[in-house]
Protein backbone atom coordinates (compact mmCIF):
# COMPACT_ATOMS: atom_id res chain seq x y z
CA UNK A 1 0.00 0.00 0.00
CA UNK A 2 2.58 2.58 1.14
CA UNK A 3 4.75 1.34 -1.72
CA UNK A 4 2.27 2.85 -4.17
CA UNK A 5 1.34 6.14 -2.52
CA UNK A 6 4.56 7.91 -3.29
CA UNK A 7 5.09 6.93 -6.94
CA UNK A 8 1.43 7.75 -7.69
CA UNK A 9 1.78 11.15 -6.02
CA UNK A 10 4.88 11.88 -8.09
CA UNK A 11 3.13 10.94 -11.34
CA UNK A 12 0.12 13.10 -10.41
CA UNK A 13 2.40 15.98 -9.48
CA UNK A 14 4.28 15.97 -12.78
CA UNK A 15 1.07 15.51 -14.80
CA UNK A 16 -0.65 18.37 -12.99
CA UNK A 17 2.37 20.64 -13.47
CA UNK A 18 2.42 19.83 -17.21
CA UNK A 19 -1.29 20.64 -17.53
CA UNK A 20 -0.54 23.99 -15.90
CA UNK A 21 2.18 24.49 -18.54
CA UNK A 22 5.04 24.41 -16.04
CA UNK A 23 8.40 23.61 -17.61
CA UNK A 24 8.85 20.57 -15.38
CA UNK A 25 12.34 19.85 -16.67
CA UNK A 26 13.85 23.20 -15.84
CA UNK A 27 11.85 23.40 -12.61
CA UNK A 28 13.31 20.07 -11.48
CA UNK A 29 16.84 21.12 -12.40
CA UNK A 30 16.49 24.49 -10.68
CA UNK A 31 15.27 22.83 -7.50
CA UNK A 32 17.89 20.10 -7.60
CA UNK A 33 20.64 22.73 -7.83
CA UNK A 34 19.92 23.71 -4.23
CA UNK A 35 20.47 20.17 -2.99
CA UNK A 36 24.26 20.01 -3.25
CA UNK A 37 25.10 23.26 -1.41
CA UNK A 38 22.69 22.02 1.25
CA UNK A 39 24.63 18.77 1.64
CA UNK A 40 27.97 20.55 1.76
CA UNK A 41 26.69 22.88 4.44
CA UNK A 42 25.38 20.02 6.57
CA UNK A 43 28.44 17.77 6.18
CA UNK A 44 30.73 19.43 8.78
CA UNK A 45 27.99 19.39 11.42
CA UNK A 46 27.20 15.78 10.64
CA UNK A 47 30.89 14.86 10.80
CA UNK A 48 31.31 16.56 14.19
CA UNK A 49 28.28 14.79 15.63
CA UNK A 50 29.04 11.36 14.16
CA UNK A 51 32.67 11.55 15.30
CA UNK A 52 31.69 12.40 18.87
CA UNK A 53 29.05 9.65 18.84
CA UNK A 54 31.51 7.07 17.48
CA UNK A 55 34.08 7.80 20.19
CA UNK A 56 31.42 7.90 22.90
CA UNK A 57 30.04 4.54 21.82
CA UNK A 58 33.20 2.60 20.92
CA UNK A 59 35.06 3.68 24.05
CA UNK A 60 32.46 2.03 26.24
CA UNK A 61 31.32 5.37 27.71
CA UNK A 62 27.80 4.69 26.46
CA UNK A 63 27.98 1.34 28.25
CA UNK A 64 28.71 3.12 31.54
CA UNK A 65 25.80 5.49 30.95
CA UNK A 66 23.60 2.45 30.38
CA UNK A 67 24.76 0.92 33.67
CA UNK A 68 24.29 4.19 35.47
CA UNK A 69 20.71 4.73 34.31
CA UNK A 70 19.53 1.13 34.89
CA UNK A 71 18.68 1.55 38.61
CA UNK A 72 16.86 4.83 37.93
CA UNK A 73 14.88 3.15 35.12
CA UNK A 74 14.03 0.25 37.39
CA UNK A 75 12.77 2.65 40.03
CA UNK A 76 10.15 4.06 37.65
CA UNK A 77 9.14 0.59 36.43
CA UNK A 78 11.14 0.41 33.19
CA UNK A 79 12.73 -3.00 32.56
CA UNK A 80 16.54 -2.92 32.92
CA UNK A 81 16.81 -4.91 29.66
CA UNK A 82 15.70 -1.75 27.83
CA UNK A 83 18.49 0.46 29.25
CA UNK A 84 20.96 0.02 26.35
CA UNK A 85 18.24 0.81 23.82
CA UNK A 86 17.08 3.89 25.72
CA UNK A 87 20.65 5.17 26.04
CA UNK A 88 21.50 4.56 22.38
CA UNK A 89 18.25 5.70 20.76
CA UNK A 90 18.89 9.48 20.67
CA UNK A 91 22.31 9.00 19.08
CA UNK A 92 22.01 6.54 16.25
CA UNK A 93 19.12 5.29 14.15
CA UNK A 94 20.87 2.38 12.46
CA UNK A 95 22.54 1.24 15.69
CA UNK A 96 19.28 1.32 17.63
CA UNK A 97 17.54 -0.71 14.92
CA UNK A 98 20.34 -3.28 15.17
CA UNK A 99 20.01 -3.27 18.94
CA UNK A 100 16.23 -3.64 18.67
CA UNK A 101 16.73 -6.72 16.52
CA UNK A 102 19.19 -8.09 19.08
CA UNK A 103 16.75 -7.38 21.93
CA UNK A 104 13.88 -9.08 20.09
CA UNK A 105 16.00 -12.16 19.37
CA UNK A 106 17.28 -12.36 22.95
CA UNK A 107 14.03 -11.82 24.84
CA UNK A 108 11.45 -12.72 22.18
CA UNK A 109 9.52 -10.28 20.00
CA UNK A 110 6.17 -10.88 21.72
CA UNK A 111 7.35 -10.65 25.34
CA UNK A 112 6.81 -7.52 27.43
CA UNK A 113 10.41 -6.45 26.87
CA UNK A 114 10.20 -7.15 23.14
CA UNK A 115 6.95 -5.25 22.63
CA UNK A 116 8.07 -2.29 24.74
CA UNK A 117 11.39 -2.15 22.88
CA UNK A 118 9.51 -2.06 19.54
CA UNK A 119 7.12 0.68 20.65
CA UNK A 120 9.98 2.66 22.15
CA UNK A 121 12.02 2.61 18.95
CA UNK A 122 8.94 3.39 16.84
CA UNK A 123 7.88 6.41 18.85
CA UNK A 124 11.21 8.15 19.46
CA UNK A 125 13.78 9.74 17.18
CA UNK A 126 17.54 10.13 16.78
CA UNK A 127 17.51 13.51 18.47
CA UNK A 128 21.21 14.38 18.19
CA UNK A 129 21.29 13.52 14.49
CA UNK A 130 18.17 15.59 13.75
CA UNK A 131 19.58 18.56 15.63
CA UNK A 132 22.95 18.34 13.87
CA UNK A 133 21.41 18.17 10.40
CA UNK A 134 18.73 20.83 10.80
CA UNK A 135 20.76 23.39 12.72
CA UNK A 136 23.77 22.57 10.57
CA UNK A 137 21.86 23.46 7.41
CA UNK A 138 21.43 27.05 8.59
CA UNK A 139 24.68 27.36 10.52
CA UNK A 140 23.10 27.70 13.95
CA UNK A 141 25.33 27.00 16.93
CA UNK A 142 23.22 28.61 19.69
CA UNK A 143 20.49 25.99 19.81
CA UNK A 144 18.70 27.39 22.91
CA UNK A 145 15.94 25.14 24.25
CA UNK A 146 15.74 22.82 21.23
CA UNK A 147 17.81 20.03 22.80
CA UNK A 148 16.19 20.09 26.27
CA UNK A 149 12.71 20.14 24.70
CA UNK A 150 13.61 17.26 22.38
CA UNK A 151 15.07 15.24 25.26
CA UNK A 152 12.03 15.84 27.47
CA UNK A 153 9.80 14.76 24.60
CA UNK A 154 11.96 11.66 24.09
CA UNK A 155 11.71 10.78 27.79
CA UNK A 156 7.94 11.17 27.58
CA UNK A 157 7.96 8.84 24.56
CA UNK A 158 9.91 6.20 26.49
CA UNK A 159 7.68 6.43 29.57
CA UNK A 160 4.46 6.29 27.59
CA UNK A 161 5.82 3.32 25.57
CA UNK A 162 6.40 1.44 28.82
CA UNK A 163 3.02 2.34 30.30
CA UNK A 164 1.05 1.71 27.09
CA UNK A 165 2.64 -1.72 26.63
CA UNK A 166 1.53 -2.65 30.12
CA UNK A 167 -2.09 -1.69 29.54
CA UNK A 168 -2.60 -2.32 25.80
Amino acid sequence: MTDYILPILIVLLVAYALIRRVNVYSAFVEGAKDALPMLIEVLPYLAAMLTAIAVFRESGALGYVTKAISPALNAVGIQAELAPLIALRPFSGSASLALLQDTLLTYGADTDVGRTASVLVGSTETIFYTLAVYFGAVGITKTRHALPAALISGAAGVLSAVILCKIM
Binding site: I10, L13, V14, Y16, A17, R20, V22, N23, V24, A27, F28, V29, E30, G31, A32, D34, A35, L36, M38, L39
Partner: peptide, 16 residues
Amino acid sequence: YILWMGLLNIAKEAGL
Protein backbone atom coordinates in the same frame (compact mmCIF):
# COMPACT_ATOMS: atom_id res chain seq x y z
CA TYR B 1 18.02 15.28 -1.74
CA ILE B 2 18.41 16.06 -5.43
CA LEU B 3 15.27 14.09 -6.29
CA TRP B 4 13.10 15.67 -3.60
CA MET B 5 14.35 19.22 -4.03
CA GLY B 6 13.68 18.87 -7.77
CA LEU B 7 10.15 17.56 -7.23
CA LEU B 8 9.49 20.19 -4.57
CA ASN B 9 10.37 22.91 -7.05
CA ILE B 10 8.00 21.43 -9.66
CA ALA B 11 5.25 21.53 -7.02
CA LYS B 12 6.21 25.12 -6.21
CA GLU B 13 6.00 26.28 -9.82
CA ALA B 14 2.68 24.50 -10.26
CA GLY B 15 1.31 26.55 -7.36
CA LEU B 16 0.79 23.53 -5.12
